[in-house]
Every structure is written in C-alpha cells, then in structure tokens.
C-alpha cells in the first residue's frame, strides 16, 4: 500500500487586510459619534398665566409662600416659609421638615391639593431655587425610593 506523504501541506493564509480596514472604519465611526450624555432629570410644573389660573377653581387649601432672599452677589441670605424665618445651618433641610409636617406625610403619596409659591429675589442664583423646589416637592428615603410631597409648585410673578 502506498502511503501518501503527510508533510506535503499547503499553508492557507487568510486575507486580513479587508477585515482590518472595515474594523478601523467602524472604530472611527464610533469614536466620532461618541457623545457623553450626562444624566439629567426634570421637575415638571404646570404654570398657566395669571389670568388663566384666576379663572380656574380656587383651591381650598391655603397657598404656602416660600421666600428666598439673596445677597447682592446672588448668594442665599434667608429662607422664609410664610412668616417663619429659617436661618439655621441648612435652611433647605429645615424647609423640607416644615413642609413635611404641614403636608402630614407618612411615606404615602404626596399632597395633590397643596400649592406652594416660590418668591425668589431676581439676583438669586438658580441653584438655590432648585434646592427649594427639591425640598418642597419630595425626598428620597434610605432605600433610594422617591416620595412626593407637594406637586403644585410655581414661581410668584415678577414685580
């Protein structure tokens, strides 16, 4: 019996060039379309114009007024809830506790009736207004669950 020579094998070379071409093209495409999107979120508020809101049914619950006073440089000078001045170390945390006491939250759903009006000084830096909205509208508990307090928040019209 004739035994074939097993060492006589052809070396098959794969053509890598087209694959590397397309892979680099894909890489370049993804690099150029890469966009870092920061996580953002919204506070949704419904604020009809003053004339439209006057024509709607008045709410039975009294309107809570939060006043944010600014220093000439736009920093926070004072927070006031109605006539109560909140001037501690963390005024927004105090505001949050006061709102929670008023709304009577016990971890349940927020008050849909209560409305809060924020009257902020023109020069006040917006981050303080955002802090006030955060303190008023809800909180995140230890389990990371979000609870709502007051859903109806609006800005007082400018003088």
């Amino acid at each position: 019996m004739k035994i074939r020579n097993a060492d006589h094998r052809e070396i098959i070379t794969l053509q890598m060039t087209p694959m590397i071409d397309i892979v680099f093209q894909l890489l370049v495409f993804f690099v150029f379309t890469f966009k870092i999107v920061l996580p953002e979120g919204d506070f949704n508020i419904r604020m009809p114009s003053a004339s439209a809101s006057e024509s709607s049914q008045p709410s039975e619950t009294p309107l809570l007024k939060v006043r944010l006073r600014a220093t000439p440089t736009g920093e926070l000078a004072r927070v006031q809830l109605g006539d109560l001045v909140l001037d501690g170390e963390a005024p927004f945390a105090q505001l949050h506790l006061e709102i929670r006491n008023l709304v009577g939250d016990s971890g349940g759903p927020g008050s849909t009736e209560q409305e809060v009006e924020i009257e902020a000084d023109y020069e006040l830096k917006y981050r303080y207004a955002m802090n006030a909205i955060t303190a008023i509208t809800g909180y995140v508990d230890d389990n990371g669950e979000q609870h709502k307090l007051v859903e109806r928040v609006r800005f007082a019209p400018l003088p």
């Binding site: 953002e40 508020i45 604020m47 736009g74 902020a120 830096k125 800005f155 019209p157």
Partner: peptide, 29 residues
C-alpha cells in the same frame, strides 16, 4: 446653576404670555 432666578422667571413669564403652560425645569441627577 449660577444664572439668575429672575431670568428663569422672565422666561416662564414670556412663555405664559404666549399661552404655554407646561414647564420642565431641568437639573442634574
């Protein structure tokens, strides 16, 4: 974050004049 709250109110005021009612104030998580 460092813009004037008054200007935000002015934007809202103009939008209200033009009959917009729904606003989303955007913040960073």
């Amino acid at each position: 974050a460092n813009s004037k709250t008054g200007l935000v109110q002015e934007i809202i005021g103009i939008c209200q004049e033009l009959k917009f009612e729904k606003f989303a104030l955007r913040g960073k998580q």
